[in-house]
Write a protein that binds this DNA or RNA. Structure first.
Length: 553
DNA sequence: TAAATTGGCGCC
DNA sequence: AAAGGGCGCCAATTTA
């Protein structure tokens, strides 16, 4: 079974892995090989890591297939290497194996193939060669090749993070739980504090109300003469009633209990490490997801349990205002590039120029533009934003318009939005191949983009594509940043252990901490230049060297 | 009875 | 001041 191909200096294969017994053996036998082409990093690389080896770079055929299918407007077709080969030879295309469920704490899961359909070596090379041609056929081949390389690097980082694990002190976690929730008692193990709060809620209403049943809570408020549409936090905060305070407290603690309580700890933390399974490109915008463990939603209070090993430190680095900086870089709006061309707080600089010093209004206006705000003060401020930064606003407006019209949009490097449901029908002849929306600012400077006429669905679609070009291009940048950081720390004992959209944590010996912090800062600007070319836009980080994650920021 | 959906909320 | 984008996870509820 061939899973990997070492690629020599001429770009051709060095040999087949059968000769070496397996991918780990092949890597060990070729210490000088810089780049490996293989079917799936998730399948092959954990074996390599388990054998104590690493690779410098790789080309992940199945990751590339997904990106290329997306670019070709064919998202949803099977993306396994076997499927790609079948399409190439006009054979019946096998469906992808169903995604694996999360397996808490199972080390075995790391060695399960992500694709159940491994290709022989020669077939894999045929698919690889075809993929290289398909890169050349895209709107920006250089960017698309960069995207595939970045996604492949992300796969390496993810596998290494999965192997390293996030340092996690179960004893500290339990202390936090006991402090917040009290002891557990009864058959369900319900914490004492939750029971007390539930009693307080019932007492405030004068009858038994279960706080975790929204319908019951809404009814109870109705009986008390208060009409609420939902039990959402922001709506409850407006209500003046003695039940509100214990109710809100209950919700917060209940969530910690169910999502990050004792059973979570038992499932996901072993030998002092939390090991979520990271999935690069798990979302359509290119953001990562995790398969189990909820690593990207760790509540702030629980972060106290993330503690460096003795003599080691956590370098916690948070990219500052990443999305507006990315918008500046991709829209080439001169005013916004100027605002983003400094390490200083972007929203403050923005407010100095366009919002008479009101930082909050500036921030809301920008986020409103990126998210597609439809009402409220944000709209008024959006007008000011549009006057001062016309190209930046036109960029996201164009993306929204494309979405409403059922066209595709792409991130800066070429990751492509999924086709709208039913878009193929609306398009007439070109079924299944929607046109690309070239978000060139020049096309839309003639006037303001007014939704209004579009259907609710189309408007929702527009908000999605509007956000997609920014969130997705930010994910492009983040991948390159991770790749640069991985390369910079390759000679150190430091390990990347956590990544969450715009935040990265490196676990390293105390004496390496300053070098790691410097490497992070360099990686931010380097990624900006590689992704977006020469640009004045800066990509600074807030970096904290701490022993405990909770102490960062 | 199991799978899918909903409401809510944590993170960005 | 208002409730826009992306996720994952849990429990309860509805649907198949």
């Amino acid at each position: 079974m061939s899973l990997a191909v070492p690629v020599g200096e001429d770009g051709g294969p060095v040999g087949a892995v059968e000769r070496f017994g397996g991918v780990a053996e092949a890597v060990l036998a070729h210490p000088g090989v810089e780049r490996w082409v293989w079917q799936s990093t998730a399948t092959s690389y954990p074996r390599v890591l388990a054998a104590g080896a690493r690779v410098e770079r790789c080309y992940d055929v199945e990751a590339a297939e997904l990106l290329l299918l997306g670019h070709e407007g064919r998202l949803g077709e099977p993306r396994s290497a076997a499927a790609a080969w079948a399409r190439l030879h006009r054979r019946p295309v096998p469906p992808d194996p169903p995604p694996r469920a999360a397996e808490p704490g199972s080390q075995d899961s790391l060695f399960e193939p992500a694709s159940a359909l491994p290709l022989p070596l020669d077939a894999l090379l045929e698919v690889y060669a075809d993929q290289l041609r398909r890169h050349d056929a895209t709107a920006h081949p250089g960017r698309m090749r960069l995207l595939t390389a970045a996604e492949s690097a992300g796969m390496l980082v993810a596998a290494e993070m999965n192997a390293a694990g996030l340092p996690w002190r179960a004893d500290v976690h339990k202390d936090v739980l006991r402090e917040l929730l009290g002891e557990r008692y009864g058959g369900s193990g319900e914490p004492r504090r939750l029971a007390e709060l539930a009693d307080e809620v019932s007492a405030a209403f004068g009858h038994r109300v279960r706080p975790d049943l929204p319908a019951e809570v809404v009814k109870a408020f109705a009986r008390a003469g208060i009409r609420i549409k939902s039990t959402r936090k922001w709506e409850l905060e407006e209500v003046d009633h003695p039940a509100v305070r214990p109710l809100l407290q209950y919700k917060t603690l209940y969530r910690i209990w169910t999502a990050h309580g004792w059973s979570w700890l038992q499932d996901w933390v072993h030998d002092g490490r939390f090991r979520p399974e990271y999935t690069p490109g798990g979302t359509v915008t290119g953001r990562w997801t995790t398969n189990g463990g909820g690593a990207l939603q760790i509540p702030k209070v629980i972060r106290r349990a993330v503690v460096a090993d003795p003599g080691w430190r956590l370098v916690v680095a948070d990219a500052d205002q990443m999305e507006p900086r990315v918008l500046a870089a991709i829209s080439r709006d001169r005013g916004l590039m100027d605002v983003a061309g400094s390490e200083d707080d972007l929203y403050t600089r923005l407010s100095d120029r366009a919002f008479s010093g009101d930082r909050e209004h500036a921030k809301l206006a920008l986020l409103g533009a990126v998210y597609g705000q439809t009402s409220g003060d944000g709209l008024k401020n959006l007008a000011a934003l549009r006057r001062r930064f016309p190209l930046a606003v036109a960029y996201v407006d164009d993306a929204a318009k494309a979405g409403e019209e059922g066209r595709l949009v792409r991130t800066w490097l070429g990751r492509t939005s999924p086709p709208a449901v039913g878009a193929a029908d609306d398009d007439g002849g070109e079924a299944g191949m929607p046109q690309e929306a070239e978000s060139t600012p020049a096309a839309a400077t003639d006037g303001e983009f007014t939704p209004g006429y579009a259907s609710t669905d189309a408007r929702a679609r527009g908000r999605f594509t509007r956000n997609f070009v920014v969130q997705g291009s930010a994910a492009d940048w983040a991948l390159l940043m991770l790749a640069a950081l991985r390369r910079a720390t390759a000679g150190m004992r430091a390990e990347l252990v956590f990544f969450q959209h715009d935040e990265v944590i490196v676990h390293c010996p105390e004496e390496e901490a300053e070098a790691v912090a410097a490497a992070v800062r360099d990686a931010g600007d380097l990624a900006g230049r590689i992704a977006f070319g020469e640009t004045p836009v800066r990509f600074p980080f807030t970096v904290a060297v701490v022993e405990c994650y909770a102490d960062a920021k």
